[in-house]
Design a binder for these strands. Structure first.
Lengths: 338, 338
DNA sequence: CTGAAAGCGCTTACAG
DNA sequence: CTGAAAGCGCTTACAG
């Protein structure tokens, strides 16, 4: 009953050829006669033989496994909008190359060394980092040690050139802010997340750029930082509603923040968008369903996943010669924007 | 500059001991003198040596990698509520045993054989299946071939006994329905998802059981099936509002469905919970934030992840002797329930 | 086109 | 407590 694990030697014996020949057939080497190939393939099928990946790896160079590092905090907050499509995109590209994704959810306290060992022990060929913070030491460690990695979102500014894919967050925020400006708004608030994340910093910059283009001096009182959650948005908006000259328009760095802000606004019996217009970020599935429907800025996340996977495969062969990839962000109008 | 990869032989030479002794030190064997151990450990540290996992695996039995299979469809729909905490729980347990999670997002068309090869090629020690459908052939394939697996959520009814962790969905739905019954509701609707999922089937059964206990004959017109999304809930509720004797209370099989249903109800200018009370499932992060706050049934998802990981480690050693694990579902009252 | 043999980097009886 | 040697299951020059 119990199937005994069959190996390359068994196949060789059964097919009356050498182990080397079986190996050549497995690896699709051209140096095998059609007749021999067929014979060996038949035995392989018949005995449902699967070459040991580890034994292969011991002889070959690559493991065909890539580690995906995800900070739990963000995994939780933005999961709905972010990780499933990101992973889907990656999977699509990696499947074709028979690469597998090893998932590491970064815990705190965060010990970068722990994750390096996946590479040093030869388990993975490298890393894909998802949304690490600006001051995260991990990318620099990888860089120093010549370990292949791709970052989804930019990381430390200390690195001159490294492979990443990113959304054009500056432009996304710029366009959303410009929309408000063209509608005649002068008091436009920004609900920021933690500026330790580059994507937050970029959205901030896009906002500032647009204001300046229209000759408006950014008012620090209109820029409030909090978590990217509903709670964060609610609290931030509460603050804004209390100042002397409250905003007539609000750009939030996430849709959850925008939803919290809407709660705060409606609580004061103000109208959206008549009294305060609002635009979020992420284009969540529910945006079109809430009342009023929430305008947002969309990222091409599945596309980012694909590009990250492609870039990773590229740098394995070309560690020097690569270009970072920037994908567009698109402003999606809905009624909340006015 | 370029670090040459160091191996166990190098360490042995540097430490003036045999390869076998280095191996013993690495594996914490007691048969090494304290003096030798320290000497070897020092060299290992000094040269930042990491034993090759693949070479170890070739000699040892286990790979210490488990494949987590996630259907993309559900990954997308319930990600926010489900996968991040599930993975977090699993990670917590696996980290301690130095197990890694390999992530496979199941694509369609779905080819079960593709995923079996992860095991047959010796890459993983087994599988954790997340929310597969009732008719999914994969669990039976694994069972037939004696491949270790744990399922999160029950699977095919063809298998007599297999390791799974599940939420007590029957009880959860029973309690929510009972709440309505105790409030005097007679016309209680159920918004179902696809009954190909056991958790949907179970929620359905809990609902039926409660009705029967109160001597109410289930009315097929009050049971509507659609997708577990906002859209699905909206459409299902629209149907219910059109029947002659519409429900005064609604249990939805997901919070997204409940949110869609609320949209449909409010569109008709009906009041929640006065005209129609509503309870969802999942206890999403946003439930308390919407208007009116949405009552729900909560699962202990992070706990499921932990239990799944523990059960997996258990069955590796005890393929026969194990018990499935059922975790509680808790009704969370909020205003929408009335 | 094919095979014998060395090698990948470990672990583990076995002998002492 | 320690070491020499065989073995895990492959790949790949090398020779023919």
């Amino acid at each position: 009953m119990r199937k005994v694990k069959i190996n390359i030697r068994d196949i060789a014996r059964l097919a009356n050829v050498s182990v080397a020949t079986v190996s050549r057939v497995i690896n699709g080497s051209p140096n095998v006669s059609e007749k021999t190939r067929k014979k060996v393939l038949k035995i392989i099928q018949e005995y449902d033989y699967h070459p040991s990946a580890f034994a292969q790896k011991l002889s070959k160079a690559r493991t065909q496994i890539v580690a995906l590092l995800i900070p739990y905090e963000r995994g939780f907050i933005l999961s709905d909008a972010f990780f499933p499509p990101l992973i889907k995109g990656m999977t699509e590209v990696f499947d074709k190359k028979e690469y597998n994704i090893m998932l590491s959810m970064i815990e705190s306290p965060y010990i970068p060394q722990k994750y390096v060992s996946l590479y040093k022990r030869g388990i993975v060929d490298g890393y894909i980092l998802a949304n690490v913070k600006k001051d995260d030491p991990f990318p620099e460690i990888l860089y120093e040690e010549n370990i292949p990695f791709v970052s989804v979102g930019r990381v430390s500014s200390k690195l001159k050139k490294y492979p990443y894919v990113d959304t054009d967050n500056v432009k996304g925020a710029f366009e959303a802010t410009t929309y408000f400006l063209e509608k005649g708004h002068k008091r436009i608030a920004l609900l920021k997340g933690n500026s330790n994340y580059n994507f937050i910093q970029d959205r901030y910059e896009g906002y500032i750029l647009a204001l300046k283009k229209y000759g408006i001096k950014p008012d620090p009182k209109l820029i409030v930082e909090d978590t990217l959650t509903i709670d964060g948005g609610y609290k931030a908006m509460k603050k804004l509603l209390k100042i002397n000259n409250p905003p007539t328009a609000v750009l939030a760095c996430s849709d959850y923040m925008a939803i919290g802000a809407m709660d705060a606004i409606l609580e004061e019996k103000w109208e959206i968008p008549e009294d305060v217009a609002i635009i979020g970020f992420d284009d969540l599935y529910i945006d079109g369903k809430i009342e009023p429907p929430l305008a947002s800025v969309r990222q091409e996340i599945e596309e980012m996943g694909k590009e990250a996977a492609k870039l990773f495969l590229h740098i394995l062969d070309n560690p020097i010669d690569f270009e970072p990839i920037i994908l567009p962000a698109t402003f999606i109008w809905r009624r909340s924007a006015g």
